[in-house]
């Protein structure tokens, strides 16, 4: 088990958070998004360029709910990820792996009435990072979520089942034991598209929110 990732010390507050216990706090409401904020193709990361991206085509879907199990409907889900070779279409990523001209690796969708989201993409590659010598991030997809309250705002990462890099990853291992597995998607044959894509299910529970 690696030393868990604790982040950059110089960027982390030293003082305790100040608790706001105010039923009128603006943060108990939140922004909304609508049909004009997304197009149908935004949720299919394999169709954003003239050609097909390289890599294993997958679907990733699940439900977004709050802690009481209520679906978060009509809300924005955004994802971003590396390409199949483990490289981001981002200037600062200088990993010596090829960019894919047919893959940007960013997508978005709105959840449906039951809180479901669904993306079609390719399985991202693992990539090296500078945490320690020969450290590799397991394949992951970054997720950004909104609830009904700004307090529910969540940015996190989804992992793939059975990845041998997981127990070696300081970032995944930085999450307490009991919570870690909830960041790992499940392979779900029901979500696979015959002859086309492997299906993964990952449900998300947003914290906080209006009482």
């Amino acid at each position: 088990m690696p030393e868990p990732y604790r982040g950059a010390l110089s960027r982390q507050p030293q003082r305790p958070l100040v608790v706001v216990d105010d039923p009128e706090a603006v943060e108990l409401t939140g922004p909304v998004f609508g049909a004009a904020d997304v197009t149908a193709i935004d949720s299919d990361l394999t169709r954003q360029h003239p050609g097909q991206p390289l890599g294993q085509r997958i679907t990733v879907s699940g439900r977004v709910v709050d802690r009481t199990g209520r679906p978060v409907h009509g809300q924005l889900v955004e994802i971003w990820q590396a390409n199949a070779a483990g490289r981001y279409a981002h200037r600062r990523d200088q990993h010596h792996a090829p960019l894919d001209p047919n893959f940007t690796g960013a997508g978005r969708c709105l959840t449906d009435d039951q809180g479901h989201y669904r993306f079609t993409t390719i399985r991202p590659g693992a990539y090296p990072w500078g945490e320690h010598s020969n450290s590799w991030r397991p394949a992951h997809i970054h997720f950004s979520l909104f609830g009904t309250a700004f307090t529910q705002r969540l940015v996190t990462q989804m992992y793939f089942p059975g990845d041998p890099l997981l127990p070696l990853d300081p970032i995944w291992c930085g999450v307490p034991d009991a919570d870690r597995q909830r960041l790992v998607a499940a392979y779900d044959p029901e979500l696979s598209v015959p002859g086309r894509a492997l299906g993964y299910r990952w449900d998300i529970v947003l914290d906080g929110g209006p009482r």
């Binding site: 709050d66 590396a82 990523d93 969540l154 940015v155 947003l206």
Partner: peptide, 16 residues
């Protein structure tokens, strides 16, 4: 339900 843990946004969100 137990909430999904948050994880760092990392350095590469700028294209998304």
């Amino acid at each position: 339900l137990e909430p999904t843990p948050s994880q760092t946004i990392g350095p590469y969100f700028g294209h998304a």
